[in-house]
Computed example of a mutant assay.
Amino acid sequence: MKLESNATPATATVTGSRKDRMRKRRKRNAFVRFVRRLFIALCLIGTAAAVWAFFTPSGTQFRYLVADTLITTQHRHWAKYVIGEEELKRRVEAYNHRFEEMGQEEDLHEIAPVPEVEHKELVEIKPVSGNGYKGYLMIVNDPTKIRIVVPNRVGMGEKVSSMVSRTGAIAGVNAGGFADPEWKGNGFKPIGLVIANGKIYYNGLGSKKKVQIVGIDRNGKMVAGNYTLDEMEEMGVKEAVSFSPRIIVNGKGLVKNADDGWGIAPRTVMGQREDGAIMFLVIDGRQTHSVGANLYDCQQVMLDNGAVIAANLDGGSSTVLVKDNEIVNSPASKYGERYLPTAFLVFDDPDAVDVPNIWEGLDPSKIDPGKKIKR
């Protein structure tokens, strides 16, 4: 005898719907439990991270590293969320004071006379790398072949690659700093002083009697430190820009350790060996292939390569190295090269180079560094 089921199609449908609802409810409850557990886990991790960051020596060290790194970027104000606004002000003041101190010691280094016959290439470039950074060291074997070059158009800076191409230079790097409101400056208003071919091209010192400079004297000896205009004239400074700090003097490093290295960033550093060769260190940063370096890293690279004096130049998004009309490194700016007021360029015949003073007759106090220029 054949037995027939009591369930009608409608009853089976209702039963199936109930099972679907129960299945969905179980999934929803499981998801809610997962989210709740994840939230609790994140809270525990966040609490543990906060305890580590604010109540342990290693955590405090990490917070200051992050803050110092932010200070070197266009998001300097973010550092207050890491160490507090008052501590940020204190930190910046402490660095400024320390940088001033690092420029005070008398520089006693001497260089060998440039030989009349030199079999080395005028410019050599070699890659350098370290923990988290990559870059290049450009060696200029005759320091007297280096000149400061400035833009050729009133109202805006110029890319280093453009300066190299325009003047027929062999190579070049970015040099001094400039007023850069909200990191949108036109690159035309230098900070401090610009000296080219022994003449003052730009004087934005105001009432300041001393200024930190980085440059070269008439004999090719590198000059870096805190000096007055009279002292610079007596020293025979020929090419110079304002920037700091000096990180090596008389063959010894002035940056004590990585904690005093002013954060991680793209860097440009200038140094000199006893044989007179000038070295430009360019470190990429804020990129996957190279996060950047602190000043202690740069100091050690320069010492390892024989520097007896070295000083920091403008870095960050300005850092660039150009050789044979090609950009060698990878600038950090998302727009590529920045427009800058000064560059150290290398020439076969620097005396034949004409560098007009683009700031002649201008009042530094009336130059608008944030004026938008069509490019």
Rank of each mutant, 00 (worst) to 15 (best):
E274N: 11
D275E: 05
A277M: 00
M279C: 01
F280H: 05
L281D: 04
L281V: 12
V282D: 03
I283F: 01
D284E: 14
D284Q: 06
D284V: 08
D284H: 03
G285N: 02
R286T: 03
R286K: 12
R286D: 03
R286C: 01
S290C: 03
V291F: 10
V291N: 12
A293R: 13
N294L: 11
N294D: 13
L295C: 08
L295K: 12
Y296S: 14
Q300L: 13
Q300W: 08
Q300S: 14
V301N: 04
V301W: 02
V301P: 00
V301K: 10
L303V: 03
A311L: 11
A311K: 13
A311Y: 07
A311W: 09
N312D: 12
L313D: 10
G315D: 09
S317I: 13
S317W: 07
T319N: 06
T319L: 07
T319R: 04
T319F: 00
T319W: 00
T319P: 01
L321D: 09
V322S: 06
V322M: 05
V322R: 10
V322Q: 07
D324F: 02
D324K: 11
D324N: 13
D324T: 10
N325Q: 15
N325W: 08
N325C: 12
E326Q: 13
I327P: 07
I327D: 07
